[in-house]
Design a protein around this nucleic acid. Sequence first.
RNA 1: GCUCACGUAGCCCAAUUGGCAGAGGCAGGGGACUUAAAAUCCCCCGAGUGUGGGUUCGACCCCCACCGUGAGCACCA
Length: 845
Amino acid sequence: MAYDPKSIEPRWQQYWDEQRTFRVTEDPARPKYYVLDMFPYPSGAGLHVGHPEGYTATDILARWKRMSGFNVLHPMGWDAFGLPAERAAEREGLHPALITQRNTDNFRRQIKRLGFSYDWEREINTSTPDYYRWTQWIFLRLMERGLAYRAEIPVNWCPALGTVLANEEVSPEGTYKETGDPVERRLMTQWMLRITRYAERLITDLDLLDWPEPVKKMQRDWIGKSYGAEIDFAVADADERFTVFTTRPDTLFGVTWCVLAPEHPLVLRITTAAQRAKVEAYIEKSSRKSERDRKAEAEEKTGVDTGAHARHPLTGELLPIWIADYVLAGYGTGAIMAVPAHDTRDHAFARTFALSVKPVVRAVEADAATELPFTGDGIAINSGPYDGLATAEFKERVSADLEKRGVGRQRVQYALRDWLFSRQRYWGEPFPIVIGKDGEAVPLPDDALPVELPHLPDFRPTTDGRPPLARATDWLATRDPRGGEATRETNTMPQWAGSCWYYLRYLDPLNDKAPFDPAKERYWMPVDLYVGGTEHAVLHLLYARFWHKVLFDIGLVHTPEPFQKLFNQGMILAWSFQDGSGKYWHESDIEERDGQQVVKSTGAAVTTRIEKMSKSRLNVVNPDDIIDAYGADSMRLYEMFMGPLDATKPWQTRGMEGVHRFLQRAWRLWFAGDEDALSAQIVDEPADTETLRTLHKTIAGVTEDLEAMRFNTAISKLMELVNHLTAAPQRPRAVLEEFLLLLAPFCPHFAEEVWHRTGHEGSISTARWPAADPALLVDDRMTIPVSVNGKLRTKLDVPMDADEASIKALALADLGVQRHLGGGTVKKVIYVPGRMLNIVVVGGA
RNA sequence: GCUCACGUAGCCCAAUUGGCAGAGGCAGGGGACUUAAAAUCCCCCGAGUGUGGGUUCGACCCCCACCGUGAGCACCA
């Protein structure tokens, strides 16, 4: 029969399920390989073609590694807690648990249709009590170590969502990254995780990892380490002092005023009576400002003079003290020394309020007409005893001097803030915490876990910031482990909680005594390869690393880092078609007329563009449709054939047809026409030398490409082999078999089907990966291109072992070459062994 | 504005890292098969590598400047 994925694929998927083909357990006799996909949030929209891109890549690697003798752990699960389910639940009037159930069922169905070799017996779901029991358990460990605490702090409150958000979830424009809803600042009591305590290790341990450099850079930048100094300023005529942080202590002589953040505790104590009204008004106004407003006004600086003055720690000069909201309460000490000549923000501020500017650094270059603000390094001027010092030296010297006088010290500062860890939403992990009569947050004992999420008919957020769980009256009232009554904590954990440790639960998903068995952890960890999108470069990957380090410190895991190698797959885009009026059309409504893309029905010309897939652009590709039309193996193949895995690239359904044709052609190597019988061209004789060479080059090439994750070129090599075999009059059975093994990781259903039709037992996924014979990889002759003055003039066909002298002689004797030498003098002959020969000639015609 | 990627046939992409610009696929043209068409098979066409300089015997590859696309960062003192 002809190649028919529709009948083949479901059969093999069922076979793998029934035979539990991909179930794994620890096996000390074999090397392990843990290959992990970033598990999906099961959204209502179902799978889009971007999901299977990464999943296909890891599946190919998992299958290849298995065939190469590795014990492969390849699991899948669901990041199932989170806001979107709640929002969908509100829209549809269903409970979030039902929505989540429905969506995970759909995702599982779609993923299974692609024939991935997951060990489904390890499937996890972060929203089940069996799982979040251990999320809560880890939270208790964090608490024991003083890494979780409650604090009243200004937080990012999103009114549209009715919850607070972490810094990492808020865009620079002051909106929620996911939905674009505006975010305000509010003072609230919230749970925080002390990720800042791990800032240094989160930076240095990046060096241990095989991760893309841009991702490492994003993490380093987010943590934002900077070296500088703290300098103490006394307030004149008062027994008060404040400390500033600066990375430029060398500009200390250029300070012309100081600025405190509006929230700085000292502000109201030092403000003079004359300025008090203005200062209070400014504080009031800036406390109400959203992040968005603050950023929008970044250009025009605002602020108010407190009327108070500070004493310069070295010169004793009097410096006005201002408050301004360009100084952030949460960074450094919440106070700065303003050096308008050498800081762009201070400079802008000086211009707005006509404050004085004093240059203290000049550029090293001769043209000393330095334009202000000059923020580079240079030579000190107007700096008393320090004049003439270079910036770096000045910093050292002045920090030491300040320290000696007790008014300053060197200091390392991180931009990273503690992680805001509570949300005022329903669909998340409850905290294993009760609030006692005395208002204390009391951790529950381990045996009280899990604290189950109560079933709430009305789970919507409240407008006043009280979490929905506050409505669960029966659930709320409980006992204080210290004795007496207590109420439960009503906040829930953020969506990131469950994904902070899921890769560990896969190791031992059914364990009800511990999050996982330490012996299993020692066998499987770390994750050898982690594949997912760049959108998690900071959030998930930073949080997970933080938790992992805490678990490492407790002794629960044996590696300092969870994910040894990280790979980011690129985004899949699609062509869109937009007519002159801006209306989008679906690809099926478009045709080409006279080299111009037009709308079939109206004839209107359209502009074609490669854009992100979205419903509004009518360019979304649904994996179900593709599988219906071409089969899962073709889809897998195309996902990989489109281009390099990490590249952003457009989906083209035409390209699908190309790889589908390749599979049909491959099928015909065995089965001609509609016959079930094997092709008469298949022979049991040994292959000719050329075929053997082609085969072994393919084996070597595909293996190398898989090692380097170059799936697109691996597939093109398989295509070459098929083209060769198609053209050959005879097809040696042994060669076909090796080809089938090479194809198996890419197109597993196809491979199983042919494997069994050609008389094999058992799954091809347990067969051995072919080995290339080195003897067959070298040709006995080679072609050496010969150029004269860099221009290609002829090619020489010589034996592989021809030596340099004979090749040179041959080249110089060549008639074509002689003609191009034109009687000139041969100045030099460059021979690159096995590659090419270049003759440099001067003079001549 | 700053930083980092990427610009190769009509399109998606290769090119052993400084050595023959083409592996593969799509589209296009021709032929075979067919009453015809589809499918299939065979053959063919096609760029000098975004632009301008530089280094080199030799540059898609290295350096400089510019243009375009994409991503990230952007009051962090």
